[in-house]
Every structure is written in C-alpha cells, then in structure tokens.
C-alpha cells in the first residue's frame, strides 16, 4: 500500500524535516506514527497527500511513485486517501450533511447515492440525526466525528489522521480510536500520527517512531510495549 524508500524532505527554508525514511505499510494494515513535536509526523503525511514533495527517495502509493505525479494528476491520488485533521477542517457555513458530502460532490457522485452514503457514514460515527446541524453547534468530539465521516464517505483505500484526538479528552479519544479500529476491521489501511498517550496505550497496533526527522523505530508489532519511544 505505502512504501517509503530513503525519503528525505527539505522545506523551502532549507530545514530537513525527514532524513532517509524507509518503511512499508501493508494493505489493510493500521499503524501509528509517533514522536516528539516537530519530529516530522505531519511532514510525512503531507508527502502522501502530495502537499509536499520529497527532496530525494521515493514514496510509493499503490505502486505509484508520488514524487513523479504531475500537478495535473494530484487530484486522482487525493481522491483515494481520506484525511482526518486535528482541527477537523469543517466548513462552518455548511451543515453536517454538506460537509460530509463534499468529497462525493467533488467526484460527482449521483445525488441519491450521496444521501445514502452520507447517512451511512454519519450513522457509523454515531451522528445520525445531526445532518442539519452546523459544525459550531457541535462539541469538539462530535466535530471530529464529522471529520472522520467525511474522510471515509468516499471509501478511500487509505485513511490518514493527523492528531485526530489532539483536542479531545481521554474518553472521547478512546471513542475515536474505536472508530479507526472499526474501519481497519473492514479493510481500510490507516496511518495515524499522534503523540496522544491515551491513544497509543489503548492498543497494540504497529508503531512508527520519528525523532528529528529520522525513523528510529518501525517495529512490526509492539504488543505490550510502553508508549515512550
């Protein structure tokens, strides 16, 4: 599904955010990306959405070298990746239904199908009946769940999350984690960047640990291991 081969990434100001990172994420696998603040977690995810390009090395997604994807074709890659953001990035002027429907609108899904899929996604995250509400009238936990519904509504093959529980209390974090596990159960590959101990401690999934742009741990299975790198 994902394959990083000696990937380095340098920002415009010359700062090297990733240094020769290599790892693989198998189809249907779920992994956590962790590390201190500024370690390069978000940067790594940005390479997958082609929001940034690597300075060297190759980033393969479903066999496609993302470094070579032309500007014109970026949208095709992005349609196959669902992303959950820390600040959930909901549009405050649009209601819950419209927010979740956005990815389907973009790919031109038939309206009846949109209604069906949006309802299904909202029911999966436990927000049936909130379709007409506006994001600002929801709690931050609910907002995040709308963000998750939007990320999965178009059935992407890969789910990325950047600090999905950053603003939530431990109980809510656990709910969110449960959601990701549910999606993983039905075969969605996912990579979740977080330094939320609550999230990491409550599962035995694979953990990729970054430190100052270097991948220092990519254990395939860390069952029983503590959260600190």
């Amino acid at each position: 599904m994902i394959s990083f081969n000696s990937v380095s990434m340098r920002y415009d100001d010359g700062f090297e955010a990733l240094k020769s990172v290599s790892f693989d994420l198998a189809e249907g696998e779920m992994a956590f990306l962790t590390g201190h603040s500024g370690a390069g977690k978000s940067t790594l995810l940005k390479l997958l959405t082609i929001s940034e390009r690597p300075a060297s090395g190759e980033v393969l997604f479903n066999g496609l070298n993302l470094a070579r994807v032309s500007e014109k074709n970026i949208y095709k890659v992005r349609r196959d990746i669902g992303v959950v953001y820390q600040n959930h990035r909901l549009l405050s002027a649009k209601n819950v239904f419209e927010n979740v429907a956005l990815p389907l609108r973009i790919i031109g899904t038939d309206y009846r199908e949109v209604v069906k899929r949006v309802r299904a996604a909202l029911s999966k995250v436990g927000l049936s009946g909130s379709e007409k509400k506006f994001p600002n009238s929801l709690s931050s936990g609910e907002q995040q769940r709308v963000g998750i519904a939007r990320a999965v509504v178009s059935k992407p093959s890969l789910l990325l999350a950047d600090e999905p529980t950053g603003n939530l209390d431990p109980d809510l974090s656990r709910d969110i984690l449960k959601l990701f596990e549910d999606f993983n159960q039905v075969g969605v590959s996912s990579l979740i960047a977080t330094h939320d101990i609550n999230l990491l401690d409550k599962n035995n999934k694979r953990r990729l640990t970054l430190s100052h742009g270097v991948l220092i741990d990519k254990s395939a299975n860390i069952e029983g291991q503590s959260a600190s790198p």
Binding site: T49, K76, R78, R79, R89, L102, P103, I106
Partner: peptide
C-alpha cells in the same frame, strides 16, 4: 480560501 484549500485536499480539480 479555506474552502478552496480543503477542496483541493479532497481531490477537487481546478475546473471544479
């Protein structure tokens, strides 16, 4: 700008 940025991230084309 925020909405447009988000739409790009969700895979919208320029013409869309």
């Amino acid at each position: 700008a925020d909405e447009i940025e988000l739409m790009f991230l969700l895979g919208a084309t320029k013409s869309f």
